[in-house]
Design a protein around this nucleic acid. Structure first.
Lengths: 202, 202
DNA sequence: AACATTACGTACCTATAGTTACGAAATTAA
DNA sequence: TTAATTTCGTAACTATAGGTACGTAATGTT
């Protein structure tokens, strides 16, 4: 169960599996609520001791930061592929919606979005997590902006709408969709809502 | 400072000013975050003792429930007037947007919306507050539904969109607007976003 | 074999926040 | 004046959760 490491160093070999802890933490935060999962719960679920987690992540804040980062790596690649790809705007939009309202049970991941859930609770996090939240949020806005600008230059998107505003709009709609999903609204209805929202650009 | 009450009863006169406590609590929850304001803070700001608050509201949960109820009474009347009034759909929509993005500093109230903030933190409340959140949310959806249905019957709203979905859409857009406002986005941009979102129905 | 090094985990510490026990105070009724 | 009633508020209690001191275990190096 010890973690792979080369070259093997001296001292007692490390038992804590960082990736396993991160994945467990991220799933707890995601499925439940990021501010309602005590470190002790992560410890129980992974079999790690509290001091081990503190050695690895420094603090609760550090663990949340690392977990959010791991979440992003796990989840945002698909969105990036869609937004950075070279398919036409309409197709990308449809792919985005389809991806957003995909059945989470089939993919075996929780409903909602950890990043949006954390943004809604900004005040409750430490500086590291806060910085990570802001960074990922900015990444996401920037991806929308570049996508929109490319669509504009291909005459596939209305030029009378400022890119910044449109990016905020996309972000806000996706946030609403994730919240509705978490509240239990069906993906079918969420899809209709998203299509309605983006029809405003058509 | 004692509270008005007739007829005067026996026993030590009540000192605790329920309305003052509720207004203070509601403003703290609203301006800050509803889950980050300890009872002790409400006590300090109002000069009441903790046992007094517990006698009056039973528990933290009870206080939050009462504060949310007071918030709704304070805030939702205007929206109700707009939605239940008899002006045409377009005018009502415009009034709704204007009201939503009004300058909060002028009205001397915090940014954002307490009900949406609480909905985003559902898991963190007790049963009383939870029930109140759900009730007010349902009230709000019902107001949208009736408004939309009237607009439909007056041929001012597309009949091909289910009323339930449209109501969810209104609610979601207003939620986004309140969150953006809380995040510091200008009311001007928020107004543009709302107008864009609702242009989908035009 | 003895030492240096690194990681482990039990058992604590501390702060916070919700909650309450209980005796004192302020009023009306008898 | 005394009793009955109602509320007051100090000073606790309790549970939770973040965080750590410290002795032990497991490895490589000499």
């Amino acid at each position: 169960m010890s973690v792979s490491r080369n070259p093997p160093t001296r001292g007692r070999p490390k038992k804590l599996d960082r990736e396993h802890v991160l994945k467990t933490a991220l799933l707890c935060y995601w499925a439940d609520s990021p501010t309602d999962v005590p470190i002790s719960e992560i410890c129980e679920k992974t079999g790690a001791s509290k001091p081990s987690l503190y050695r690895e992540f420094g603090s609760d804040d550090g663990l949340k930061e690392a977990a959010l980062d791991a979440y992003d790596e796990l989840v945002s690649q698909r969105r990036y592929d869609i937004l950075a790809g070279d398919q036409p705007y309409d197709e990308a939009l449809e792919a985005l919606i389809t991806h957003t309202v995909q059945d989470r049970k089939k993919a075996d991941v929780p409903n909602g979005c950890l990043l949006f859930a954390m943004r809604a609770r900004r005040e409750e996090f430490g500086p590291l997590t806060l910085a990570k939240i802001d960074q990922l949020r900015e990444n996401s806005l920037e991806q929308y902006r570049q996508w929109i600008d490319r669509a504009k230059s291909n005459a596939q998107f209305r030029r009378d709408i400022p890119t910044d505003t449109a990016a905020l709009y996309f972000d806000a709609q996706m946030g609403s969709a994730m919240r509705l999903q978490k509240e239990g609204v069906s993906n079918k209805v969420i899809g209709e809502i998203l299509r309605t929202a983006f029809s405003a650009f058509g």
